[in-house]
Amino acid sequence: MDVIIRTVSKAIFPFILLLGVFIIFHGHLTPGGSFPGAAITISGIALIIISYSLKKAERIINEENAHKIEAIVALILALIVIYEPVFRNYIKYGTRLFELWSAQQILFLNLLGGAMAATALLLIIFLMVKE
């Protein structure tokens, strides 16, 4: 596409990723959580796919790696939700409010859920572009 669009998207892409990861990480403090954060992260990659080509986006994250990440993250997420009272008793940080390490297991669950939603959306977008 055009030179202006390419340059601007290349410049703004890290900030979109940063915003998305911030929303995932601070899901227990600010409104957000895993699903909106994953959507914002993947929209950054969609920007790269539109302005450049699919190959350049594939250099950022490969499709087979996405499959493997999805399977592993799904396993860990299922295990944590099964044994949730155990995790809640072991990951106590005390009752510090409004800090990053405050809610007991919600931090890890947000990270895992965000990773899973992001890889699922990434695979869907890759398949739609490959047509």
Binding site: L29, L77, L97, A103
Partner: peptide, 28 residues
């Protein structure tokens, strides 16, 4: 009870975590 000021996150990931696992399975 959960230590997070975001009540939506505490309901989604703590009180009703099983439904969220079900939604992730739907995405998968």
């Amino acid at each position: 009870k959960t230590g997070s000021p975001n009540i939506v996150s505490s309901v989604v990931w703590d009180f009703r975590a099983f439904d969220t696992l079900g939604e992730e399975t739907v995405l998968f």
